[in-house]
């Protein structure tokens, strides 16, 4: 059964200061998968997401995203970028997810506020909705940005290390939500930092080390051999990866 491709990346290369960060990357992401992107440090995982969204310039290659409009795609970067002291509450941040749909000058409607509230509920943030963002724990802060992404009601989601440094409860809530989105037919790409949970959480995986080492369903692609090639000795044992497919 041929699935429609949500994203087609072809021969993509990105460099910073003449240093290649991504090299001749070919990647096809079918619609409706929950995909992990894994690789060692410096493999270009975050850059891959940014390049797909045209947030960084590319040296060569092309990216085709099968989308209706700009609101089709949602991006949740790593947590560091934000000024936590900014005078804004959790509720307000999540409502920002609707701004793309509202457009210039117009105000958020009651319908927008309802969508935001639903997103807050799904991420179990209703009891902290009126708090200023610095008053939250790390896991809660991560959930705020995910709630914002959810409020965008996109079809394709790009998440950069959403589970990095979060508590167990947050991890559960987030993965449950991502699976639900996948079941609804959305396409989700997650730069994932923890190789040992890939098989448990994801159905597709891309192994990246500046180039794509392998990409496809976890059962086919997430093998000992491919992992060794990707991590080249940075994993202590294959059992670190928890892979069970040979």
């Amino acid at each position: 059964m041929k699935q429609t491709q949500a994203i087609e990346v072809s021969n993509l290369s990105v460099a910073y200061n003449a240093q290649p960060v991504l090299w001749t990357v070919d990647l096809n992401v079918p619609q409706g998968v929950l995909m992990a992107i894994v690789g060692p440090n410096g493999a270009g995982k975050s850059t891959l997401l940014k390049a797909m969204l045209q947030l960084v310039p590319r040296v060569s290659g092309s990216v085709r995203i099968n989308k209706r409009d700009k609101q089709h795609v949602s991006y949740v970067p790593q947590r560091g970028n934000v000024d936590w002291d900014f005078p804004i509450t959790v509720k307000d941040v999540v409502l920002m997810g609707r701004y793309g749909h509202i457009g210039w000058i117009k105000r958020p409607t009651q319908a927008d506020k309802t969508v935001a509230l639903q997103a807050l509920t799904q991420l179990e943030l209703t009891n902290v909705a009126d708090r200023q963002i610095s008053e939250l724990s790390g896991g809660q802060q991560q959930r705020v940005f995910l709630a914002r992404a959810l409020a965008q009601q996109a079809e394709i989601y790009f998440l950069d290390e959403p589970l990095q440094g979060v508590d167990a409860k947050t991890e559960q809530i987030v993965m449950k939500l991502l699976r639900k989105l996948r079941d609804e037919g959305k396409t989700i790409l997650v730069v994932h930092h923890d190789v040992s949970t890939v098989a448990r959480y994801f159905d597709w995986v891309t192994l990246l080390r500046k180039r794509v080492i392998a990409s496809g369903p976890v059962e086919q692609v997430f093998t000992n051999e491919k992992l060794q090639e990707t991590y080249q000795g940075q994993l202590h044992t294959a059992s670190d990866a928890g892979c069970v497919y040979e």
């Binding site: 969204l53 947030l55 700009k70 609101q71 795609v73 949602s74 991006y75 970067p77 970028n81 934000v82 000024d83 900014f86 804004i88 941040v93 920002m96 701004y99 793309g100 914002r148 965008q152």
Partner: peptide
């Protein structure tokens, strides 16, 4: 408000 708070998100939704 959006651009002052989060430039990357603003860019990603086309503002």
């Amino acid at each position: 408000k959006l651009v002052t708070f989060d430039t990357i998100f603003a860019q990603s939704i086309g503002i």
